[in-house]
């Protein structure tokens, strides 16, 4: 790890100012990802601004009748929060599907959004990587790419976003509240993370100095019919090869509204409203679910070691939709 100076911010504005003024400064909260990357020399900040003492620790109601998660609430406290369990069980389930109990105690909700890819080449400073070093090339496209993306890739980068929590936040249409040098703004979750394109060094649309203050969950939590199906190499404590978050609003056997978000397959949680719309007013049958899977995976492209993910994702989408449908019958 490189040497760096350390300051502890007491106010959001101070934290924003410190990181805005110093281009090589970074925020640190739970630290579970940035310290790991610093040990690998992937991140080399000259200053860390500790934001853990900022007053962003509350889970409270928001004006839309939903829930507002303070950016510094831990992943564990969020997953076990009674209101999250009752109203947003999909979110609770996705959080508990990720990392380990220790890491969930440390990691924050805001920080989870900024997790960086676990692409082996991004972590290995001896290899080219456009995300780590723009213009150096992508080692994954013709390398070992078993864990890599099949959707929304570019010739520059085929990395995936590693978060489970973010897959639920995408399905739930969460909104991220940020504060920066130019004031406050809201970012729709679909616009928060980005595809790699020609600038894979940018994981998201947050600007320098902006800090996430909270995450808003809309009133609808799909608490009756939901599931998170995570497929991975171990039963626990492993990143998703493919994951599917589903929320259904059912009227008997008819689908009023469907949400389907995929993890482990793209540079961001993958949603396609046109695919979800195929179910609107339709029966919740396997045949219809297959059409959704076809639409969601349209244009999917494998790179050799990860080509299996296309069929895996197709089956996982159908199975997750069946699982979410079956819930009401119990």
């Amino acid at each position: 790890m490189n040497s760096f100076s350390y300051t502890r911010a007491q106010e959001v504005d101070t934290a924003v100012r410190e990181v805005t003024q110093d281009k090589a400064a970074k925020f640190i909260a739970g630290g579970t990802n940035i310290l790991d990357l610093m040990k690998e020399n992937v991140e080399r900040p000259d200053r860390l601004v500790d934001i853990t003492r900022l007053p962003l620790q509350q889970v409270e109601s928001n004006p839309e009748g939903g829930l507002r998660l303070g950016a510094l609430v831990s992943n564990a406290d969020t997953a076990y929060h009674p209101e999250v369990i009752e109203r947003y069980p999909l979110l609770s389930k996705t959080i508990l599907a990720g990392a380990s109990a220790q890491l969930r105690n440390m990691a924050t909700d805001g920080g989870n959004l900024f997790q960086r890819t676990r692409c082996y080449y991004f972590y290995d400073t001896a290899t080219p990587c456009n995300k780590r070093e723009p213009g150096s090339g992508c080692s994954a496209i013709n390398g070992y790419n078993r864990i890599h993306a099949i959707l929304g890739t570019s010739e520059q980068c085929i990395a995936t976003h590693p978060s489970d929590m973010c897959v639920a936040l995408a399905a739930l249409d969460a909104v991220v509240n940020v504060k920066g040098p130019e004031g406050e703004r809201q970012i729709k979750f679909e616009d928060f993370h980005r595809l790699p394109g020609n600038e894979p060094q940018y994981d998201n649309t947050v600007k320098t100095g902006e800090i996430v203050t909270s995450i808003d969950l809309p009133a609808e939590g799909f608490a009756k019919n939901y599931t998170y199906l995570k497929l991975r190499d171990r039963a626990s404590y492993a990143f998703a090869l493919v994951s599917v978050a589903v929320g259904l609003d059912l009227d008997g056997d008819t689908v009023r509204e469907a949400r389907v978000a995929l993890g482990g397959v793209a540079h961001k949680p993958w949603r396609k409203p046109e695919a979800e719309a195929l179910l609107k007013g339709q029966k919740a049958t396997k045949e219809n679910f297959r059409k959704v899977a076809d639409a969601l995976l349209q244009g999917a492209k494998g790179f050799g070691s990860n080509t299996f993910k296309i069929e895996l994702a197709h089956r996982a989408i159908v199975r997750a939709l069946v699982m979410a449908t079956e819930m009401k019958k119990k």
Partner: peptide, 15 residues
């Protein structure tokens, strides 16, 4: 009282 990984924790942050 909460379990954490001490390797991914800066000592200074636990003041």
């Amino acid at each position: 009282g909460k379990r954490i990984n001490s390797c991914l924790t800066l000592a200074v942050m636990k003041d």
